[in-house]
């Protein structure tokens, strides 16, 4: 039973982690928290489903198509909503993403309706059963993709030119511009990449939690929490925090109370933050003078 709880927790946690990664990527470079992230990802999942159903595209092509759509959506939002607000206070940008949330959610409801449905593609494999411990293939795929994303982003930041530019833009915009880095281009790229990642995540998650306009909201909130738990600025931290959140929820659900599991998870989050205010792997908070 404990093993199964742990596995289920890790499965849920890797879903949160997938979302947390995109959120942290965006935050690391452009310093923005995007509450519309859940809805942008959801739309991508619907686009993929529409490509499969209406155009009859095979799954991999539809997946790529949706990623491309995501990149364009990210570019569009950055160019026409975020960039013009570069002088506005942070909180205004956060509220702007809340407005995006409402607009995208409402529009998606108009186009696809509010009723849920199954995602038109699923792995036709029975779950693995190792002496009573069940692991679904979806979870294995999500877990691997999460690790893959984390690793490639980590390497990207560390060793590639664009990664260095991203880090530079994140650390000091003015200096980055002086060094000849086109900060705007870096931001555009980050938005495109982060949105595409969110959409990739949503498409992988959709077969598990179904296709529905509100599908990503709960997950985004847990993804935020996971990211903060692990340290908001650290990519490995975001993944570890999210996995931990999933496991805590699962164990609390199994041994304490099945309906108060997120209450316990969030209480623990607050407790951890009180002890270590920047999360588990978060760097020191630097006081600005």
């Amino acid at each position: 039973m404990v093993v199964q709880q742990l596995i289920s927790g890790l499965a849920m946690g890797s879903i949160y982690a997938l979302v947390a990664l995109g959120v942290v990527l965006l935050y690391k470079t452009s310093d923005v928290i995007n509450f519309g992230y859940s809805e942008m990802s959801m739309v991508g999942a619907f686009v993929a489903a529409t490509l499969i159903i209406s155009l009859g595209l095979p799954y991999p092509l539809a997946f790529l198509g949706a990623l491309l759509f995501g990149a364009l959506l990210g570019l569009f939002v950055e160019r026409f909503a975020v960039r013009p607000m570069h002088k506005a206070p942070h909180i205004s940008v956060i509220i702007m993403t809340l407005a995006l949330f409402m607009i995208i959610n409402g529009t998606a409801g108009l186009i696809w309706g509010h009723e849920g449905r199954a995602f038109p593609y699923k792995l036709n494999k029975d779950p693995i059963d190792i002496s009573g411990v069940v692991i679904s293939w979806d979870s294995i795929v999500i877990f691997s993709v999460t690790l893959l994303f984390m690793l490639s982003l980590f390497l990207l930041f560390k060793y590639t030119l664009i990664g260095v530019a991203m880090r530079a833009a994140a650390q000091n915009k003015t200096a980055a511009v002086l060094m000849g880095i086109s900060v705007n281009r870096v931001f555009s790229l980050t938005w495109a990449a982060s949105t595409a990642m969110g959409i990739g995540g949503a498409i992988l998650i959709a077969p598990i939690i179904f296709l529905e306009v509100n599908m990503m909201q709960e997950i985004l909130i847990k993804g935020f929490a996971g990211a903060v738990l692990g340290g908001f600025t650290s990519l490995p931290g975001a993944v570890i925090g999210s996995l931990l959140l999933g496991v805590i929820e699962s164990l609390a659900g199994g041994y304490i109370s099945s309906d108060l599991k997120s209450t316990f998870a969030f209480s623990l989050l607050i407790l951890v933050l009180c002890i270590k205010p920047t999360g588990i792997l978060g760097g020191k908070a630097i006081k600005k003078v």
């Binding site: 199964q4 709880q5 289920s8 997950i219 699962s250 199994g254 099945s258 309906d259």
Partner: peptide
């Protein structure tokens, strides 16, 4: 709003 019922099912 629950998404994961595995612990319920195990019990």
């Amino acid at each position: 709003s629950d998404l994961d019922f595995s612990s319920h099912i195990l019990k």
